[in-house]
Design a binder for these strands. Structure first.
Length: 419
RNA sequence: GUGAGCGUAGCUCAGCUGGUAGAGCUCCGGAUUGUGAUUCCGGCGGUCGUGGGUUCAAGCCCCAUCGUUCACCCCA
């Protein structure tokens, strides 16, 4: 037992019982991205480590301790992508996708972070994301939020709520940071260890501390939206107006800050109460400086990332039973000769779009029929020496009240399609 | 990285105050010959995560280690 090799910690196999949920979710995501006229982009899983260090931020936990990073045989520092926005921006700049133009992009695929696994958090996990690059107006912010709302509806997940905040421009954030630090320094003795450490490195992150004592202190802390300049204030107002107009409910949460340094201006999260501690299923916002920092023209942008494992868990949690398409036919053959004929006939059935499983090899009819029944197939086709001599196959309906009947090979298709 | 819970058949689990293992499901076979959901009977299947220790004796107690789950941290 213990000598058997197992999968890497936090990296899970997707088993056949789960894959229908994934296929459903992936299909919905693709359709909705397409409905908003976003185009798919796929970037490599490996990138240069520097891309994420420079984009996500040196002081973030993701970069400091959660990346699968290594030096390859050629001495290059590479890492497995911990998220995809930085790669999308890199690719867009590299190929001129944003040069004097705009782009709506979506992506989906595996990401990697070396965290301690828990519910809703894995070392390999999948994200779907939409990125609107080149628009500075609130319409882009709201468009990606509306896409989120449409996704919940299409998936049938309920009790997902939108939280909203604005981090303002660089200038706003600097002034606010100073005010926040000044305030917190008055209560430094009461702060938890993590928070007092962040006082120097990343004070905004203190806002979403889960420590109750820290939260109590923060009740009287300055609020970032009070520090927005006129332009940012108007932008945020327009975001809220468009959301109101679209009848999407939301809550302003002034403690909402994102863990990746590239965010600016509008930030948002969709949360649910049904997934335990990892309750954010989608998060995003503006990153107006990132394209320029990656070497492109100054280009505004916004987008979100969505955790697909969390979506699937939510689907299962809410017991949204999926209707899985059953087999049409389970083909039983009783000897090797019949088996050959069955192979040929099964191919013909598949040519017309039927799903056909074969019982390989020769087994007892009784046990083969049991399997046919358990498979959920509509029909069992039985071919033995008797049938073969007469050039017929027995068509046995496994559901409903129809009788079995022997029909000629050529007539099988017609009979099955007529039911 | 920190903390807590759990690790017994393929799966879900039981195993009383320590006496060298059980159920259900699955799978296979049978209840007369080539006809599926039920029922009945039988069978396959475990060095009780691993390594040490205490004991006449350990799945049960102790230590270590690995795995796993949840939470913290962080984040989708």
């Amino acid at each position: 037992m213990s000598s058997k090799l197992q999968s890497v910690k936090g990296m899970n196999d997707l088993l056949p019982t789960q894959s229908p949920y994934w296929q459903f979710v992936e299909q919905v995501l693709r359709e909705i991205a397409s409905a908003y006229a976003y185009d798919e982009i796929r970037t490599p899983i490996l990138e240069k480590t520097a891309l994420f260090v420079q984009s996500i931020g040196e002081q973030t936990d993701i970069v400091e301790k959660e990346m699968f990073a290594f030096e390859d045989a050629g001495g290059e520092f590479l890492c497995m992508r911990p998220e995809n926005t930085a790669s999308v921006v890199r690719a867009g700049v590299q190929h001129g996708l944003f040069h004097n133009t705009q782009a709506r992009l979506w992506y989906m695929g595996p990401m990697f972070r070396r965290e301690r696994p828990q519910k809703g958090r894995y070392r390999q996990f999948s994200q779907f994301g939409m990125e609107a690059v080149g628009w500075s107006g609130a319409e882009a912010d709201v468009e990606v939020m509306l896409a989120g709302a449409r996704i919940w509806k299409a998936l049938g997940v309920k009790d997902v709520h939108l939280y909203l905040n604005s981090l303002g421009s660089d200038g706003c954030r600097t002034r606010y940071r100073t005010a926040l630090v000044d305030f917190l320094k008055q209560h430094v003795d009461a702060l938890d260890a993590d928070s007092s450490r962040r006082l120097e490195s990343n004070p905004l992150r203190i806002l979403d501390s889960k420590n109750p004592d820290t939260q109590r202190i923060l009740e009287d802390a300055p609020v970032i939206t009070d520090y927005l300049d006129a332009e940012e204030s108007a932008h945020f107002a327009q975001v809220r107006h468009l959301l109101d107009d679209a009848r999407v409910a939301y809550t302003i949460d002034s403690s909402l800050v994102r863990g990746l340094d590239y965010y600016t201006s509008t930030v948002f999260e969709w949360k649910t109460a049904k997934l335990g501690a990892q309750n954010t299923i989608c998060a995003g916002g503006r990153y107006d400086d990132l394209v320029e920092r990656r070497g492109g023209q100054s280009t505004p942008a916004c987008g979100f990332a969505m955790g697909i494992e969390r979506l699937v868990e939510l689907l299962i949690e809410e017991q949204n039973a999926l209707r899985i398409k059953a087999l049409d036919v389970w083909f039983i053959s009783l000897d090797t000769e019949a088996n050959q004929a069955a192979f040929r006939l099964a191919e013909k059935l598949r040519d017309t779009g039927l799903t056909v499983a074969m019982n390989h090899g020769v087994g007892k009819l009784k046990s083969q029929l049991k399997k046919a029944d358990a498979s959920g197939a509509q029909f069992a086709l039985i071919l033995g020496s008797t049938e073969l001599e007469q050039g017929v196959v027995q068509v046995k309906p496994l559901r409903g009240q129809f009788e079995s009947q022997n029909v000629a090979f050529d007539a099988v298709l017609e009979l099955i399609h007529s039911r």
